[in-house]
Amino acid sequence: MKEIKLKTPLTKDAVTDLKAGDEIYLSGIIFTARDAAHKKIADLIKKGRHVPLNLKDACVYYTGPTPAISRRPIGSCGPTTSSRMDPFTPALLRLGLRGMIGKGDRSDEVRSAIKKHHAVYFLATGGIGALLSTYVKSARPVLFKDLGPEAVYKLEVKDFPLIVGIDSKGRNVYDKTRWKKG
């Protein structure tokens, strides 16, 4: 099993050799976004309005953290179910989004869009948000601050542990497991 260190921004070159199943340690800047933020961004795109977040070579993390306790940058922050973001994902990929972090499988449409835009989908382990928070060095809300836990936060992470779920060739880690989409 290959273990790879990866840094943001996620350029095309940076992700091209990643294979579904690889274990990755990601460092750099990532942006949190879950259901409400995705809906808002998709609405802006649909209306032809400016999206106040530079998605070019960026990485979004599907999470809604708990509030930070004193002297820690962030609270518990594990991944939420990615498939809920599927309807909005192709539009974000068209804006240059390169990486996504979540849990669970994606739709066939998202998988094709990942391949088309040479992007990558990472899995983080669900339900271990306390442990994952120890890899986050700083956090600050940058967009849709009124959404509370659903706001977009800019996170600085160091060696955040991930598994490549869908690589830029469209290969899916679940293809090799015994679980099949119903």
Binding site: T66, I69, R72, G75, S76, G127, G129, A130, S133, T134
Partner: peptide, 13 residues
């Protein structure tokens, strides 16, 4: 870690 630091086991509380 959750028990020691009084952090939520999962962010979906």
């Amino acid at each position: 870690i959750a028990k020691k630091k009084r952090l939520a086991i999962c962010q979906d509380t």
